[in-house]
Amino acid sequence: MRRSVALTVNGQARTVEVEPRTMLVQALRDGLGLTGTHVGCDTSQCGACTVLMDGMAVKSCTVLAVQADGSAVTTIEGMAHDGELHPLQDAFWENHGLQCGFCTPGMIMTAADLLAGNPDPTDTEIRHALEGNFCRCTGYQNIVKSIRAAAEQMRAASVGGGGQAS
């Protein structure tokens, strides 16, 4: 009982054969070989599997692959362009926002969702946005710092690049 699911993954049209029970994270990892999205738990708590689905952060361990049919999915592999890191990736690097790196993809995708809706979050807002993402290494401090730094850089780029200051 295989089903074919059509997705736009990191800007590319992809189809993947899945079972009805297959989760989006398994379709990405096993079906498409995108192993940057991680599985850290089985209770939808840890957020290591977070991806953007139609622009919104979702835990891909809790979305059936068939539910994602027709969606645009962005994973950590789709964040850098032409060898240039996304400002979030760059900020995590500069501010030591990662140690073992296992939670990092989920953290970055969650942060991307946050900054899309709130380009200038307070530390408290950042910490609340990370409620669904566990990190066991960093104590979160440098993750918060990284997201703040990325927000700053993205705001500056948006002002400088698009003249969208208001």
Binding site: H38, I76, W93, G101
Partner: peptide, 19 residues
Amino acid sequence: LRRKEDPRFLTGTAHYVDD
């Protein structure tokens, strides 16, 4: 110094056992 090992973790290209 920022870490030399970080780019692979930041871009989803690291390899843990399950990968």
